[in-house]
Nucleic acid binder design. Structure first.
Lengths: 332, 332
DNA sequence: TGTAATAATGTAATCGATTACATGGAGCAG
DNA sequence: CTGCTCCATGTAATCGATTACATTATTACA
């Protein structure tokens, strides 16, 4: 039992009585090999348990069949759902993925992009840590390495992207509330320099306008997307209008804060919440009315598909921006 | 502006007037290069923007500086926290990681292990999809590819592993309750073929015994770790003993179910919950008393460290099993 | 001054694939 | 029978590094 160096093309060649060139041709489905040699070679490959060495192959072809994925946060269901969608699609298509954590930090993101370039990934999917861009995008452009943005756009950057149709999600959710005979609907929005927050806010306004609802500016407040601000803003809104019954909240974390406020202040009153996002938590929400469910794994798959098409040089017009329609759920 | 093929060692060699061997020596900090040549070479590398091609290097050294990580679920904060800890440590040490999703499926896990072997990872960290093992563990052993288990052990498999000290976490949490003058403490446990569930249950029993508390078998129920069973079992326990005040729940999801039951049945009564795990949800829990916080990112880092030591052939005794002590938090 | 030891660098094989080009034989037209 | 095409396969260079071994220059010491 000698050291089991794993078999190479050369071993297969010897076993089958051909040259390595032929083995390689069989491997790559080159039509110029005779049927019977193909068979003979395949038998040998099976017998020896031959598996191609992707590293040697990559060195020659400069393709790694490897994709980089950058996520700003690992402990975030949304990002990870998208990552899951991406990974599924890629793996089903013979690609494997490096997933790295940019820790919401644009500089780390840039560093990771450099690292991935060095590792010679064939393409990158980025869930951006910031909507403010950075030199790495230019680097990717220069080196002609395809990349696709997910969930967020970058201001002033033309790039392929796949994201939720935030406007439509917000619009439809608010419309549902209105059609469900909601009165004043307050809004807990987010920083307007975050694209998605801005779009959701616009969706809210558009729906209100379409149905001739007066937009009360006092009932529109902006948080920072985190739990605490949801808590605080819910309080402010109720102080503003103690009769308030309907609130639209643009993300999960602020919504958690709002629910918490309601719990603690025994306002188990008739407040009904419409909001973006769902998660394992949702069963504990007590004021759920309408939920906007982002099609995250579809977004991920779509992004992966787009990236692979770019890699295979499908020459699609550039850039491609897909906005996936969210699902709106009305709870009894 | 010709096509910018990125510079190779050969280019640097020409630029500096040495052979590629010397360039390589500089790159690998070989002490046998003269100081001034080292400097000259470094200047050239900088000037040309040279970066070593890790693929070519890997082909020769058969080391990829790449680690595979298998997680059973991407949308699970626990696994992803551990993955984050792993990734941090690895990256800080010059390694990069493939993270793949075994989808709680042992067969996919095995397939992924094969894929990673093919990609020639230097080692693998596995959060097992099942505690029942599989041929891939043997394969890894045969090929002498180091691997470390995280969070779960595999029955009958001697392997390096890093996990929470489940027994101690449960023991200490229950002890806290007892010392906090809790009366009967019920238990919502899990399937006994899951190591962690079993250990936590044992911790509970041990604490009860130590303080001479009668263990009422009717107040010990087992769920399947999911939300629904928590919901159902909370109901059963309350029917069993309507006076029940204290419950120890061994994981987050069943705990969510339990809280949901309490919410819906207005049992805002004096029920206090001790439980494993925390998450973004925790602010919405209304019966929190004692929480066992698993040191997930430390576990991840520890696993990564152990793996790298194995790779560097630290010859530690085999196997190493680390049980990390959880943090017990008592809420006011 | 001669020679051995040592230090700095070069030469060339190698890792395991891919692929442009070369080769040899079969089939066919004139 | 000659010459041309086509088909299956082989030869050998190549991708970009690493490294055993060879070579040369330098120093040290008898």
């Amino acid at each position: 039992m000698g050291t089991n160096r794993s078999p190479t093309m050369r071993d297969v060649a010897v076993c089958a009585g051909y040259s390595t060139a032929t083995i390689s041709r069989v491997l790559n489905n080159d039509p110029r090999v005779a049927e019977h040699t193909r068979n003979r070679v395949m038998v040998c490959m099976k017998k020896l348990g031959y598996r191609v060495n992707p590293i040697a192959r990559s060195l020659k072809t400069s393709r790694t069949h490897t994709i980089g994925i950058l996520s700003p946060e690992f402990q975030n269901d949304f990002f990870m759902s998208a990552a899951e969608g991406i990974e599924n699609y890629l793996r089903a298509n013979g690609y494997i993925s490096f997933i790295c954590n940019s820790r919401e930090n644009p500089e780390e993101e840039a560093e990771l992009v450099r690292m991935m370039i060095e590792k010679q990934v064939d393409g990158i999917i980025i869930i951006p840590a910031s909507s403010r861009g950075g030199e790495h995008y230019q680097l990717l452009r220069e080196l002609e390495i395809p990349y696709v943005l997910v969930d967020r756009l970058i201001d002033g950057l033309e790039a392929d992207a796949v994201l939720t149709d935030n406007f439509r999600g917000a619009f439809t959710a608010v419309e549902r509330c209105i059609l469900g005979r909601a009165g004043n609907i307050a809004l807990i929005g987010g920083p307007l320099d975050i694209t998605s927050a801005r779009e959701r806010t616009e969706g809210y306004r558009a729906a209100m306008e379409k149905y001739g609802k007066a937009i009360v500016e006092e009932l529109i407040v902006c948080g920072d997307m985190h739990v605490e601000s949801g808590y605080r803003l819910m309080g402010e809104l109720l102080r503003q209008d103690p009769q308030l019954q309907y609130v639209f909240i643009i993300n999960l974390f602020m919504r958690i804060g709002a629910e918490k406020y309601l719990l603690e202040h025994k306002s188990a009153r008739d407040i009904r919440i419409a909001a973006f996002d769902e998660s394992a938590i949702s069963p504990l929400f007590t004021h759920t009315w309408v939920t906007v469910r982002q099609p995250l794994s579809r977004i991920g798959a779509q992004a992966a598909r787009l990236l692979l098409r770019r890699i295979q040089n499908d020459n699609l017009p550039f850039p491609q921006v897909y906005r996936e329609t969210p699902e709106i759920i009305t709870h009894s």
